[in-house]
Amino acid sequence: MAQLLAPAELIAQVTTALDELSEQLRRVPLTEYSKPSSLPGWSNAQLIAHLASLAKAAVRQFESAGAEDVPPMYDGGAEGRIEAINMTALMRPQSLQTLVLDALAQLRASLPAAEPNWEAVVGYRPGAKVADMMYATWREMLIHATDLDQMARPPASWPAEFCAHLFRALEARVPQGARLVLQPHGKTRTVLGQGEKSWVLSGTDFDLAAWLAGRGIPGAIRVTAAADGAADPQLLPWPSDRLMQR
């Protein structure tokens, strides 16, 4: 497995992701807000509303880190999160654009103060620390940038460090009894899972990461099963109910 990023390195990566996403959002035509995104079941407006909501929630987590009674990630839990997204998505596109850009700017401004509290408890998920919230922010910003525009921000634009992180974090999607050997071109292999059913998946690191994240891949992944005639591996749903590896 790759080494975890140092706090300053991860904060720099998240800062870059926020800057790139903000610039991308400024270029989204307001007439496109009501149209479907590449994320099934989500319009562009809903996805943008989610980014604004996530940014505000992350700021609250960072600012309350280590408190005796840390707040939850979202008021009202999962249901409150979806309700807020759907309501916010009804805003006029110009107002929604202003809202999300302001929220991302506030999140960016909060990042430097997170490093001294790196292992302080937050309410993001049970057992979560500031570092976990930072990695989650990185995932949300980069993956949803691709969901908004796969042509402008394809998985090929994801940093190698981010792909390595997704290999670790999304091991939670590997079913019990399965073992996936990821072989990125020209890089060290990564083994996910410890099951008896085994597959080797070969491709670029970003294609493998996108496949693990449930996104479309621009290239090809070669799948080789240890047993002849075995079907391609299937993944579990996105692990939204528990903490993922950093």
Rank of each mutant, 00 (worst) to 15 (best):
A78R: 08
A17E: 00
I82H: 05
Q234E: 08
A105R: 14
A225N: 05
A227L: 10
V223N: 02
E115V: 10
P175I: 15
P116Q: 05
W118L: 04
Q234H: 09
N44V: 09
L111F: 03
L47G: 10
A2M: 15
G41A: 08
P72D: 06
G193A: 09
L39D: 02
S38M: 09
Q97S: 10
P155Q: 06
W238A: 12
A169W: 07
R173S: 10
P159T: 14
S34N: 15
T98M: 07
T188Y: 07
R108E: 08
R26L: 12
A120D: 10
Q106D: 15
A160W: 03
P239H: 09
D75G: 11
W199H: 08
F167T: 04
V122T: 11
E196T: 10
E9G: 04
S240E: 07
E140N: 04
T15N: 03
L4Y: 10
Q97H: 07
R168H: 11
D205R: 02
I48Y: 05
R108P: 00
N86M: 12
H50Q: 08
R92A: 05
S38P: 03
Q46Y: 12
L18R: 00
G177R: 13
S95W: 10
A78Y: 12
I217T: 15
S64P: 00
A2H: 10
R215H: 04
D207W: 01
L39I: 13
V191F: 06
S53K: 08
D241V: 08
E83S: 12
A78G: 03
L90S: 08
G127N: 03
L90H: 15
W238G: 13
L142H: 01
R215P: 03
D205M: 03
W138S: 02
V174H: 04
Q94T: 13
A152E: 10
E140H: 04
P71G: 13
F62K: 00
A128S: 07
L148H: 03
A12Q: 11
L96K: 02
H185C: 10
A2I: 15
G127I: 02
T16L: 11
Y124H: 09
L107D: 01
E9R: 08
N86Y: 04
R242W: 05
L39S: 13
A131N: 01
Q245L: 07
P218Q: 11
G216H: 06
G219K: 02
V191C: 12
W138V: 00
Q24H: 14
Q61F: 02
L170D: 04
S157G: 06
R173T: 09
A78C: 03
Q106K: 14
A231E: 11
A152L: 10
V28K: 01
T88C: 15
C163G: 14
N44H: 10
A55V: 11
P93D: 08
V191R: 06
L182C: 07
T224N: 14
E20S: 04
T31N: 04
I221V: 12
Y33E: 02
S22T: 12
T204V: 01
S34Y: 03
L235S: 06
P175L: 10
F162I: 07
Q3T: 15
A6Y: 13
V28F: 02
T188D: 14
G229K: 06
S157M: 14
Q3N: 14
A45T: 06
L208Q: 00
L18E: 00
L111C: 05
Q194I: 08
E9M: 12
A65C: 09
D132N: 12
R173W: 14
S95C: 15
E20W: 00
D207C: 03
G216D: 09
L235D: 06
S240R: 15
